[in-house]
Design a protein around this nucleic acid. Structure first.
Lengths: 230, 230
DNA sequence: TTTTTGCCTTAACAATTTGATAATATAACA
DNA sequence: TGTTATATTATCAAATTGTTAAGGCAAAAA
C-alpha cells in the first residue's frame, strides 16, 4: 500500500548513532513507515554516507566517537547540497542548553532519549509535511521546463540531459529570469564558500548549457555576471 | 526553521577572529537568529571570503595575526563593493583611543570583549534595522527605469544596454535627481580611492551615456560636477 | 576486481568588449 | 580675448569572456 502510493517520493533518511540498539529501533520504525533508511555508526561515516546518498532527512546523535553530531551538522551545512536538508539531533541529555545549541548549529528539530517510536515517527512525518517541497518542482519559463526533482530539462517537447553542475547553474539562473547573477553569487550558491575553482569554470559550464539547449537564453553582462531570459 | 527563514533574504555575516572559541560563540548566536554565517581565522582569509561572498555585515577582531581588523577594514573600504557594507570591530581593549580609531577607520560600530551574546545580537539587529537598504532595486525617474538587479535601462519602453561603468555612473546620478555630484565624489564612489584615473575619464563616460540615452538628462555644472534631471 | 564511461576542472589561446588616454575642438566665463 | 573647463573622437592596452582540448577522478559497468 504504502509502497505503491509513495513510489514516486520515497524519502531517504540517514541515521547516525554509535549505539547499535538505538540505530536498530529507529531503523525498524522508520522502515515500517515506508521510509528508506541508511545507517552510520559514527560522525565520519555519517558524513560519507550523507554525501553519497543525499538523504532527505538526517538524524544525528549528539554524542558520537570521532565527530559529534553538531560537528557533522556544521560541516554539512557549509556545503550547498545540504543547505536545505532536514536535520534532527538526538540527545540523551534533556538539558536545555544542549537543545538550544543544537538548534543554533543549524538543526531543524531535536529528539531526547529514550526514544518513543511514536514520537519519533510523528516528528519525522511532521517535518516532512511541513518542509518538504513536494509540490511540483517544475519550473516553467516559456518553452522551457526545468524539473528539479528529475534533474531534467525539456525544451519544446524534447528532453535534454544536463550534467549536475550544468543543471544547477541553469536552475539557478532560470529561477529569477532577468536577474543578473554575479560570478561570486554563482560560486557561493553552487560551489559553496569553501571550494575554490578557477576563473573559467563557470564559463565552460555556461558554454555547455548554451550548446545543449541550442537556445540563446543566457546572456552575458560583461564585468558583472550572467542572466537568464527568453 | 531554516527552510522558512531562508524564504526571504537572509542576511550574510562574515566573522573574523583568530580565537576559535570566540568565533564559535558568535557563530552560534547569530545562526540562532537566522543569519547565514561565514567565518575566517585571520585578516587575509577575511578579505578573501569577503570578496567571494559579499556579506551584509562583517565583524572584525582588531587583534589578528597577519592583518589587523583595522587594516582589513581600510582595505575593503577602498573598494566600491564594500562602501556600504556594515563593519563592526571587536576589541579586547575597552581603551577609548582604540574605539575612536576604529570608528575613524570606517567601522559602523564596535564591540568589546568579553562578548555578551545579547548585546551582540541586539547590536547586529539594530544595525540591520537602521541601515538595511533592501528597497526595491528598480529606480524610476520619469520615463526612465533603472533596474539594478537586471542591470538594464529602459527608456520609454526601449531597452538600452550600458557598459558597467556607464551603468554605475548613471545609477549614481539618477539615484538623487537634482543633486550635483562633484567629480571627486564620483571618482570615490565608482572607482574607489585606490584607483586613479585621468581627468577626462568621467567626461568620456558621461558622453557615452548621453549618446546612448539620446536624452538630455545629465547636465554639466561647470567647475563643480554633474547632475541628473529630467 | 578491472575496465569504461562521463563529469568536472583546468590550461592555453582566441575573441571580444571595455575603459582610459591623448589629442583636438568647443564652450563658458572673467 | 585669453583662460579654463568640458566635449568629442579615435586609438590602444587591459580586462573579461569564449572556446577547445586534455587530464584527473569517481561512479558505473563488465
Amino acid at each position: 500500500m504504502h509502497s505503491i502510493l509513495r513510489m514516486s517520493t520515497v524519502k531517504k533518511i540517514l541515521i547516525a548513532d554509535d549505539e547499535p540498539d538505538i540505530l536498530e529501533i529507529i531503523q525498524y520504525n522508520l522502515q515500517a513507515e515506508g521510509f528508506e533508511v541508511i545507517t552510520a555508526k559514527n560522525g565520519n561515516e555519517a558524513i560519507e554516507k550523507a554525501k553519497r546518498s543525499l538523504p532527505d532527512l538526517i538524524i544525528l546523535d549528539i554524542m558520537m566517537p570521532g565527530k559529534t553530531g553538531m560537528e557533522v551538522c556544521n560541516l554539512l551545512r557549509q556545503q550547498p547540497a545540504f543547505k536545505n536538508t532536514l536535520i534532527i539531533f538526538l540527545t540523551a541529555l534533556s538539558d536545555e542548553g544542549t537543545e538550544v545549541k543544537g538548534l543554533e548549529s543549524g538543526a531543524d528539530d531535536y529528539l531526547t532519549k529514550p526514544i518513543s517510536p511514536k514520537v519519533l515517527v510523528s516528528k519525522v512525518n511532521a517535518l516532512f509535511r511541513r518542509f518538504s517541497n513536494d509540490g511540483p518542482k517544475v519550473l516553467k519559463v516559456g518553452d522551457l521546463e526545468i524539473d528539479r526533482e528529475k534533474y531534467m530539462i525539456n525544451f519544446k517537447g524534447n528532453d535534454i540531459v544536463l550534467a549536475r553542475k550544468e543543471f544547477e547553474l541553469l536552475a539557478l539562473l532560470a529561477g529569477k529570469p532577468g536577474k543578473v547573477f554575479l560570478r561570486n553569487e554563482i560560486l557561493n550558491t553552487i560551489w559553496g564558500t569553501e571550494v575554490i575553482v578557477g576563473d573559467r569554470t563557470i564559463d565552460v559550464h555556461i558554454r555547455k548549457i548554451r550548446q545543449k539547449l541550442d537556445l540563446d537564453c543566457i546572456s552575458t553582462v560583461k564585468g558583472v555576471g550572467y542572466k537568464f531570459e527568453i
